[in-house]
């Protein structure tokens, strides 16, 4: 039987780096990332799982890290916004967001980029409607989504025309 308790040992691979910590059972994954690991790129915009600012990819699946407890991800591979760029080289979506002014305050941007990354992995050539469905769970208050849709579309076209692809998922889907 698994250990029962108010704190748990958790080992995860975050952006390619293996980390182990003792976490409180009540700690949400987003607080684990931000407060325990100091990965503050993942943001908090609501407290009901509606805004998507905390979106990360766990075992290849896009999730909201405020809707998962830290002990639940033991053994998982986690991708956050901090892992999107390859060193100083921005990912094609990051580039595209910049070029198309798809961010203003930048607060939703990390979650939005994770959703867009997941979307293009699942569907490399989405229609505008599919893009909008893909980011339905990410609220942006600044852009009216206009340039975000444009940036994702442009990144997908860039990829289709032989540009750099969206990085492949880390970890297996489970």
């Amino acid at each position: 039987m698994g250990e029962r308790g108010t704190s748990h040992a958790v080992t995860v691979e975050v952006n390619g780096e293996k980390v182990s910590r003792i976490v409180a059972a009540r700690q949400l994954l987003v607080h684990f990332l931000r407060d325990t690991l100091g990965l503050t790129g993942t943001h908090i915009g609501c407290d009901t799982g509606n805004c998507g600012a905390c979106s990360v990819i766990v075992n290849g699946k896009l999730v909201k890290s405020c809707m998962i407890l830290a002990p639940q991800v033991d053994g998982a591979t986690i991708e956050t916004v901090e892992g999107l760029a390859d060193g100083d080289s921005l990912s094609p979506l990051q580039e595209s967001f910049h070029e198309h002014h798809a961010l203003q305050c930048g607060y939703c941007t990390p979650g939005m980029l994770m959703s867009a990354t997941y979307l293009l992995r699942q569907n490399p050539d989405p229609t505008d409607e599919e893009i909008r469905r893909g980011i339905r769970g990410n609220i942006c208050r600044c852009t009216g989504y206009v340039n975000i849709v444009k940036a994702i579309r442009a990144a997908s076209r860039e990829q289709a025309s032989g540009g750099r692809p969206v990085p492949a998922a880390a970890g297996e889907e489970v």
Binding site: T40, Q94, G106, Y107
Partner: peptide
């Protein structure tokens, strides 16, 4: 501004 913000390096 975008460089830091798209990389999760903003300081909120």
């Amino acid at each position: 501004e975008d460089g830091r913000l798209v990389q999760g390096q903003g300081s909120f």
